[in-house]
């Protein structure tokens, strides 16, 4: 295989393309279902960031852990979760991954190593050091990858976690999805350094910035970091530069950015980019791409049906799960 696709086989690439399309379909469905009043609460859509979620998780093994963020639907799918149980969780149903208790911001699939999304910015970052220590002390051949945004890199807990992981040489991949905005605050206004990955030097760990909309590039850097961590080389701070096409959440009027800026990033769509490269390399046909999309559409339709038809939690169980 050419350098263009790292060590990813055509089969694997089609699988990853499928995952990215499934994430986008999931997010688009979620938005529609919300407008129809079938989902309540709020949601943080990751449309435009599929390349970083799928590229990062592609470099992990099923036994590796991830910790995710409030914008975490993509991470969940990329780590191997099923769209139907995710959608059921979104509907607040008993068949959902968290039995309807968590919803969008706490989506988790422990079976696939996803220890959960998080409603607190940088909430998963300190925990990641604990998971890393657990792996190290149990002599497991695992790594933990913690997703967080550019906003999280300004939380105090971020500093404590990176410093600890560095001094203890923990197998933690700190994966920053720099989507340019912490709600309305741009990273340019929130940080004096140009690259978030430059902060790695302050902890004595490796740091790298990568184009988050280039799945293969993300995969390559994450794989290198994972290999280093498995080999006892300690943590890495990876900054994947990307962009969220939608607002922060449901209430965002997007006064802080221009339509032109959004359009510019939409032209760098991570899905179209991989599909085009695969077609150009002869690894995918237009018809083949259509097949993948058709599969995704069917999967989403089934997921929504599953969620709609699932039972509500029994109110008699309301106290369950507070204590083990």
């Amino acid at each position: 295989m050419s350098e263009l696709f790292a060590d990813l086989t055509p089969e694997r690439l089609r699988e990853l393309l499928h995952q990215m399309l499934l994430i986008r379909a999931f997010e688009e469905s979620a938005e529609q279902l919300y407008l129809q009043g079938l989902i309540h609460g709020t949601m943080h859509l990751s449309i435009g960031q599929e390349g970083s979620a799928v590229g990062a998780c592609a470099a992990l093994r099923p036994t590796d852990y991830i910790l995710s963020t409030h914008r975490g639907h993509g991470h969940c799918i990329a780590k191997g979760a099923r769209a139907d149980q995710m959608m059921a969780e979104f509907f607040g149903k008993e068949s959902g991954y968290c039995r309807g208790r968590g919803g969008s911001m706490h989506m988790a699939d422990v079976e696939t190593g996803n220890l959960g999304a998080n409603g607190i910015v940088a909430g998963g970052v300190p925990m990641a050091a604990g998971v890393g220590l657990s792996i190290q002390m149990q002599r497991q051949d695992r790594v933990v990858l913690v997703f967080f945004g550019d906003g999280a890199s300004n939380e105090g807990a971020f500093h404590e976690s990176l410093n600890l992981a560095a001094i203890w040489n923990l197998p933690v991949l700190y994966f920053c999805e720099n989507n340019q905005y912490a709600m309305s605050m741009s990273i340019a206004r929130a940080s004096k350094v140009d690259r978030i990955s430059d902060r790695a030097a302050g902890y004595g760990m490796a740091g790298v910035t990568v184009d988050g909309n280039d799945l293969v590039a993300v995969y390559r850097e994450t794989q290198a970091a994972a290999e280093r961590a498995r080999g006892g080389g300690g943590p890495t701070l990876i900054e994947a530069r990307t962009y969220r096409w939608k607002g922060h959440s449901k209430s965002d009027k997007q006064r802080y950015r221009t339509k032109e800026e959004v359009k510019e990033w939409q032209d760098r769509d991570p899905i179209a980019r991989l599909a085009r490269r695969m077609i150009e390399a002869g690894l995918l046909s237009e018809a083949g791409l259509g097949d993948v999309q058709a599969r995704v559409d069917a999967e989403m339709a089934a997921a929504i049906e599953f969620a709609k038809n699932s039972a509500e939690p029994d109110p008699a169980t309301i106290l369950e799960g507070v204590y083990a």
Binding site: P126, M127, G130, L133
Partner: peptide, 12 residues
Amino acid sequence: VIAGVATGAALT
């Protein structure tokens, strides 16, 4: 991070 390590390690 002390509290975070307790949480993450206990979880796994």
